[in-house]
């Protein structure tokens, strides 16, 4: 049984299926996130697949400023991801609310709503930085479980 649980443990790192949620960014970070999935960066090398469904996802990539309207959606998507799971906040807006943080309808960064494992700064964040963030999250995965 030890062998099997070891294999599952190591597979977790090798097969992160990511889901991407845009909380209302200017789409700069989104374009960079999607760029990660193109042949240039080819994240499938690491077993990363872009998935549209939280029930299949392991890693949630969040871009943009969280406001009162979309925080429920964000929370709901997070709740529907089976454990173990990780959250990566991307870009200045995702981290703190960015330039919009003082606006009356804004809650702030992603970590105001759900626990965030990795913060990827930048405006917009570079694709390399995003890949690096996912890899960091995977290390946390290994440590977590």
């Amino acid at each position: 049984m030890n062998f099997i649980s070891n294999f599952i443990q190591s597979s977790r790192i090798k097969s992160p299926w990511v889901m991407h949620f845009d909380c209302g960014s200017c789409n700069g970070c989104d374009i960079e996130t999607l760029a990660v999935l193109t042949p240039v960066y080819d994240v499938e090398r690491f077993g990363i697949i872009n998935i549209g469904n939280p029930k299949h996802a392991d890693v949630l990539l969040v871009t943009g400023t969280v406001n009162h309207r979309n925080k429920k959606v964000l929370k709901n998507l997070y709740d529907q991801m089976p454990k173990p799971r990780a959250v990566i906040a991307i870009g200045a807006c995702g981290l703190t609310g960015g330039v919009m943080r003082e606006a009356p309808n804004v809650v702030g960064g992603v970590d105001k709503v759900i626990p965030v494992d990795v913060y990827v700064p930048g405006c917009p964040a570079k694709p390399e930085a995003i890949i690096d963030g996912v890899v960091k999250a995977l290390e946390l995965f290994a440590a977590k479980s």
């Binding site: 429920k72 959606v73 709901n76 998507l77 709740d79 529907q80």
Partner: peptide, 19 residues
Amino acid sequence: PTGPYLSGAQSPDNENEYI
């Protein structure tokens, strides 16, 4: 049980409905 997938727009009162 969790509710069905409704693009995250699930209603807090009834998990089979969306807002």
